[in-house]
Design a protein around this nucleic acid. Structure first.
Lengths: 112, 112
DNA sequence: CCCAGTGTTCGATGAAAACCATACACTCGC
DNA sequence: GCGAGTGTATGGTTTTCATCGAACACTGGG
């Protein structure tokens, strides 16, 4: 009895921004790697960026973890497209929950 | 030669919000104790609250450290008044640098 | 059916941060 | 000048978090 897979990949768990505490949202954005992910994502059309397509200086496991945090903060939605997992920034929903926060974080910052 | 004190207390170092990176501001607010301090401070008149007058479950050294972080993030201004160090939330200045962020964080939150 | 590509899980490691107890410095009232 | 009150500095402990290496699971193409 060799253990087998399920034949399909588990759909990623998402948290709606409405269910996200402020502290969680702030903590999610208070990391340089995740901030880069969010910003790059904001500059691309929805569902066009796979997880591995981002220019961040971390390995695959760390990257996977960061996306998990972003999902848990209601910032990112993911969908499986063949072998790749493509992403979308939850602009409107997140902005409804935390008005102005995304805009603030996406603004070109003179200091970094 | 017994080492003596200076006869006066060192004035606390402040950072103007304009010189604060977004990541620093987010990290400063992404802590439950500091969030409480900021919120309680927002609910009191300026220069009326000494450091020790806040209802947070940490000892004095930790509290002192948290205020240091808040100063470094341009969130709090401090002034010595006799033996006590009184505080003021830098509402206008911080809001000019990060519009909407303070308002967002001070809003009564259904989730926490 | 194999294999390269993509992403997650697990366990461990290292760094950062929060925290405390103690000790110190200053201010004020007595 | 004492002693209580207030805040900071120091040193060390604990916890948290970002990261990696290795192993695993799934997809799609040859």
């Amino acid at each position: 009895m060799t253990p087998r897979g399920t034949g399909h990949r588990a759909a990623p768990e998402h948290t709606h921004p409405d269910d996200v505490p402020v502290l969680t949202a702030l903590a999610a954005l208070a990391d340089p790697v995740r901030l880069t992910l969010v910003r790059e994502l904001a500059g691309s059309p929805e569902w066009t960026r796979a997880c591995g397509s981002f220019d961040v200086p971390v390995g695959k496991p760390a990257l996977s973890h960061h996306f998990s945090v972003l999902r848990g903060a209601g910032l990112v939605e993911q969908r499986d497209e063949g072998a790749r997992r493509v992403n979308r920034l939850r602009r409107a929903e997140f902005d409804a929950r935390f008005p102005g926060l995304l805009e603030l974080v996406l603004r070109a910052d003179p200091l970094d």
